[in-house]
Design a binder for these strands. Structure first.
Lengths: 338, 338
DNA sequence: TTGCATTATGACACCGGTGTCAGGATTAGA
DNA sequence: TCTAATCCTGACACCGGTGTCATAATGCAA
């Protein structure tokens, strides 16, 4: 047989109308049990599969979600932040569980991506993932909202719409890091990351960290802070510059694990011992964290639950159900670096 | 305006027929330049996007590829082999470059996945990725071939159809590893991996390794081989069992980096020094490899090119063009573990 | 037997584009 | 001026399903 079987072929074989075939295959209660069975058998025999394009066109939905992954434009083309890859894994699984397909696309944060998928009926909703420069995002969020596009976002908050965001309690995570360092009497802290509002996640981590230190009568010196985006390279250079400026500290909180790993490399290079001289705490608990030397103490985000929540919340939005704002609890994982 | 704009809306605004709108938007040479421009302007203004379902239904194609990622069923649910994640990244990029979307799905190797995407017209072709038990795959490959489904496969060879496979020269990679160890006078070698035909990739790596040793008059003792699947955990246990059986060796070739990382953990635990007592070489060059202690010597596969080749070859198959069998050159990356 | 509800099915319009064909308008050539 | 070629456009069938409506067949009560 050339070409794929259609429902008409089945109808012909079963001696019923195409309408009945369609109903039978979707297990409509309107169709007689015996007919239903016969149609199913023939469908299997002919290796028939419903044409999704036809079905989606008619029903005006797609059983597909789109995942847009934004990369830091400055980061190396070939490498993706392992944290997001881990999220991708859990999102894929969550989609499969809900019977949705997942379209994946990597975008640079600046590109003109808005709603391309949803407008063209490729996907019923969009998941946005990435540590981007969220300032750029706000106008795009507005466009999405205006077009009534269904989307959820990891990390970044959308104006007045906390229900569209799923993220880790970054502020609480920062506090955990501070409490841990204080408990180990390391109060002369450095911070590597971006403490501006361009990276709201990093900013919240810093704020939590700072506030918890303050609550313990410790202040963090601005000179002991250095900017970095979430790459190993960037963490390395930021730390080197602190060292080069002869800035001293006995603890270092990095806004992400990749930064922390770069920082440790810089410290080692300068013959500063981790954790003896400087205790290091990261954020994310990526897989690499436990394998480096020394193993990295970090604040873990549960990517499995995060992925599930993103998908669940998005589906609720699509079904026009109420969605709660979702803040996931972080957890300290103490390892050798502190 | 409620609902999305359709080509009829544009036709109405532009005062032309819907046919003309369709032609204009696809830049058909049949339509007058001025009309074309007017239609484009109105389309942009109305934020019109072609309905992919309708267009795909009519043209019987989808501009979409599907990526099926098979996981070792025994591996931890939450963690995906970083090597495949890296491939995923490059495949995504390659698809984007070619103007194709990518549907991603994780499957267990045993599931009944065959051609679901392609049959239902969700995707024009399928990329199969995974270290699975390829014995199970052969009958499924046959089904795919019978149905004239377009697919390419990473690693596993499909009977008599080398053009459907893209993979690294695993045999050559094994040779590289052996040559490297011999050059460092480490000839008492252990091998951890699966040297059966269930894992053709691992098998080829082992064969290359063994043959190169033989060419240098070194044989590998069967007792110094242990089975492992590609997880850290599995590598750890396999190595522990060798140690527990009091088997001695001064070099270890692991069929993958994850196995090597597990092996190093087991060696360290047994107070065996890497590389002083045992030199370790892995395979894949995953990101973690360079960060562990000591940094892992490994055989690198270029995932960027691999992803590109998979996509390019698949597109050629779809367009019914000739495809060459593709074997990618491996490269030795010498680091501290050897 | 008549009347009405229930069940199972077929006919048909429809989703929103694309491709084909026919035909009007314009221009070139004779 | 007439014919032919070229250019541009509209009408319409079509892709393969889904949802609605009409209807035939059956069952049950009056």
């Amino acid at each position: 047989m050339k070409g794929k079987a259609t429902s008409f072929d089945i109808a012909h074989h079963a001696g019923v109308s195409q309408s009945t075939v369609s109903r039978a295959l979707r297990n409509s209660p309107l169709v007689n049990e015996e007919t239903r069975k016969r149609v199913h058998d023939i469908a299997k025999q002919l290796n028939y599969k419903v044409d999704k394009n036809a079905s989606n066109l008619r029903t005006q939905q797609s059983s597909t979600l789109a995942l847009l992954l934004f990369e830091d434009p400055t980061s190396d083309e070939s490498q993706i932040n392992p944290f997001f890859l881990s999220m991708l894994g859990s999102i894929t699984r969550a989609c499969a569980k809900e019977g949705y397909d997942l379209l994946v696309s990597f975008q640079s944060a600046s590109a003109d991506w808005q709603a391309d998928y949803e407008d063209s009926h490729r996907a019923d909703g969009i998941i946005l993932l990435g540590y981007g420069d969220y300032i750029d995002f706000q106008p795009k969020f507005k466009t999405l909202l205006d077009q009534n596009t269904k989307f959820v976002c990891w990390g970044a908050t959308v104006d007045n719409r906390p229900d569209l965001t799923v993220c880790c309690d970054n502020y609480g995570g920062g506090k955990l890091a501070a409490r841990h360092l204080i408990a180990h009497s390391r109060t002369d802290c450095a911070f590597i990351g971006d403490a501006s509002d361009h990276s709201p996640e990093f900013f919240a981590r810093f704020e939590g960290f700072k506030d918890e230190l303050l609550a313990n009568n410790v202040t963090i010196n601005e000179r002991k802070m250095a900017n970095a985006i979430s790459t190993e390279e960037s963490g390395y250079h930021a730390t080197r510059s602190l060292i080069a400026n002869n800035i001293k500290f006995n603890a270092l909180f990095a806004a992400s694990d990749l930064i922390a790993i770069g920082a440790i490399r810089a410290l080692k290079e300068a013959n500063i011992k981790v954790p003896t001289d400087v205790a290091v705490v990261g954020f994310d608990n990526i897989a690499i964290a436990s394998y480096i030397n020394p193993p990295l103490t970090t604040i873990a985000q549960d990517t499995t639950i995060a992925g599930q929540m993103l998908v669940e919340n998005l589906l609720k939005l699509i079904r026009e159900e109420e969605v709660q704002s979702t803040l996931l609890p972080p957890a300290l994982i103490a390892r050798g670096s502190s």
